[in-house]
Amino acid sequence: MIPNAITAMALCMGLTGVRFAIGAEWEKALAAIIIAGILDGMDGRIARLLRAQSKFGAELDSLSDNIAFGTAPALIIFLWSLQAAPRFGWTAALALAVCCALRLARFNARMDAAEQPHKSAGFNTGVPAPAGAGLAFVPIYLWLITGRPIFQDWPLVMAWTIFIAALMISSLPTYSWTSIRIRREWRLFALAGVALFGAALLTAPWITLLALSCVYLLMIPSALASYARVRRRRAIPRLPA
């Protein structure tokens, strides 16, 4: 019950973001999606901790991700900017929602596959749904930080939305939590960094999220290089002892 309840809360927060967007309360709309992302990161770990993993929970999590990080962000971006486009504004918003659904379907289809090169090496295939939703909001972060209407112009927002949708269904290897290894001597610094990030998120949320999005995008080439090194190591035949 506990992990499934958290997943249901994430779904509700995603839809609540749409409700705030309808009322043009953009900061609250983005905050609802961010809370949904935090809840999404908790439910699976709590399920493993409590040994409460189930097929029902996996299916509910996938449906919740599709709504909270695909449908809801697409509607928020459409109401914020893309509805001003004379043509294809709704199509661009649909691209984000559809690509999120396709990515989740691909993930579910490969869940029981015997050979998963990216997953076995500790990488994701494409940008995950929560990260994709956060990246799609980059123009809104810039608009909230600067107040400049140029970041709300539909041509810029449309191009960015389609770009993020393409990243979600791409076959690019991206870092996952399992690929992060922190050396023992750096763990205290990592904990301090997490605490500072939490404080920055509360005091300057949009600047912090913008910086986090930039760091994530810059890490994609690094993930490509890291995965290439893993493939080269695997290609070297092992000699007998």
Rank of each mutant, 00 (worst) to 15 (best):
A133T: 11
A21D: 06
M13I: 02
R148G: 00
P237T: 10
G37F: 04
H118R: 00
I46M: 08
F107N: 09
F69Q: 05
R19W: 08
P173V: 13
P237C: 13
L94S: 12
D65M: 07
E59M: 13
L209T: 07
C12V: 13
L102R: 04
L75D: 03
P128S: 11
T71M: 11
L142T: 07
A211E: 08
F151D: 07
E185I: 09
Q83R: 07
L75A: 12
T146G: 05
P173T: 10
F189R: 11
W154V: 08
W186N: 13
L82N: 01
Y141C: 06
Q152R: 14
A47H: 06
A159P: 02
A105I: 03
L191T: 06
A47G: 00
R106W: 00
I33V: 15
L30W: 12
V157R: 00
L218N: 00
P128Q: 08
M1W: 05
V98C: 11
A190G: 09
P128R: 04
S176H: 03
P205C: 04
D112Q: 14
A8D: 04
R232D: 15
W177C: 00
A32E: 02
A235Y: 01
L63C: 05
A204Q: 14
S176I: 05
V18Y: 04
W90Q: 09
L201R: 06
P128L: 03
L202I: 14
L201E: 14
L217A: 10
